[in-house]
Amino acid sequence: MIESKAELKRLAEVAVYAAREAGKIVQSRSDTCFEVERKVAGDSLASQVVTEVDRMAEERILQCLEKGCTDFDLGVLTEEREDDGSRFEKSAFWCIDPLDGTLPFVEGRAGYAVSIALVSREGTPLIGVVYDPRSEVMYEAVLGCGALRDGEEMRIESETAQLSVFSDRSSREDSKHKAVIDSLAQEFGGSGVSQIYGYGAALNACSVSGSPCSCYFKLPKEKRGGGSVWDFAATACIVTEAGGIVSDLAGEPLLLNPRGALFMNRRGVLYASSRELAQRIRSAHGQKT
């Protein structure tokens, strides 16, 4: 069991090392041929694609985290292995996405990352680490200790008149998502909203932590999908510690240790650079549904 902030920080250092190690594997295979498979997951192609690189990176992460799991009696939840239920039995668990943004990785473009979080049994993100191996950028945070980008303190700056909306590529065809964007555009002015598509969930969310007026959201929907716990656990810690807002579309905390399905489609997810912007998005969603 983790008993101090110092122990959390030591575990964060191990997670940073594990992310870099996995990133080396990912980037070393980025320009080579590798096996691509489809798995049973959400309703989007991005959630269904998996490669041998995902599994290789995951194995390396688990090797790096193994001693900490033993020393502190931690559970593990990973994208590419069956949920063993240890997240309900231990005081905290590692939540791992070895290659978030597998689709951009397969397509040879920017947008993929390694994501590692430590989450309490109650669902509070304690540690968040996201590593972009393509640009070699490291995001990290520990609960109550702030957020870092490549070792430098990261804090969301004052709001500006220009709104940046980071969105999954699948959102282009989502009429409800477009309706919320249109509503925001009316408030900010048509030229005051820029939309950035194509990153995986981890880098979309991390982009909010580095932009003065920005957001990333996935609306609730009936079909399973909307990302899974491991897509958001690390960035929930990072963005919150950078001064941003993280919630579902009802304004409630994200369920990061849920019973049953691990998908987020029922309640959606919302990252925003300020409380005011988050409320604007929730209001726009409420008006359009």
Rank of each mutant, 00 (worst) to 15 (best):
P258V: 04
K221L: 08
A179C: 07
E3T: 15
P125W: 06
A117T: 11
L254A: 04
L118Y: 05
Y216I: 01
P104T: 11
L74G: 07
R224C: 09
R282L: 02
D231Q: 08
F232T: 13
L143E: 13
S120G: 12
R266E: 15
S183N: 13
R87A: 12
S183P: 05
E136M: 08
S115H: 00
G260S: 13
S191N: 09
R149G: 04
L65S: 04
M1L: 13
L118H: 06
L249R: 12
K90S: 09
H285I: 01
A147V: 07
R172L: 10
V269F: 04
I281T: 10
E187Y: 04
G151L: 06
V229N: 09
S91I: 01
E152R: 15
F232Q: 03
K5V: 13
G101D: 08
G244D: 09
R55C: 01
M264Y: 04
F263M: 07
K288E: 14
E173M: 03
N257E: 05
R20T: 07
A110H: 11
R121N: 11
R134F: 09
Q195R: 14
V50H: 00
S194L: 09
I96L: 14
T32Y: 03
K24W: 05
I116H: 01
L163K: 03
A179D: 14
Y17M: 15
A141M: 07
I127W: 04
Y131L: 07
V269N: 12
G101L: 06
Q27W: 13
R134E: 14
Y197S: 01
V246Y: 10
Q162T: 14
E122R: 15
G101H: 14
R267I: 01
S175M: 12
V119D: 11
V49Q: 14
L262M: 15
I25R: 12
A41F: 03
K5W: 06
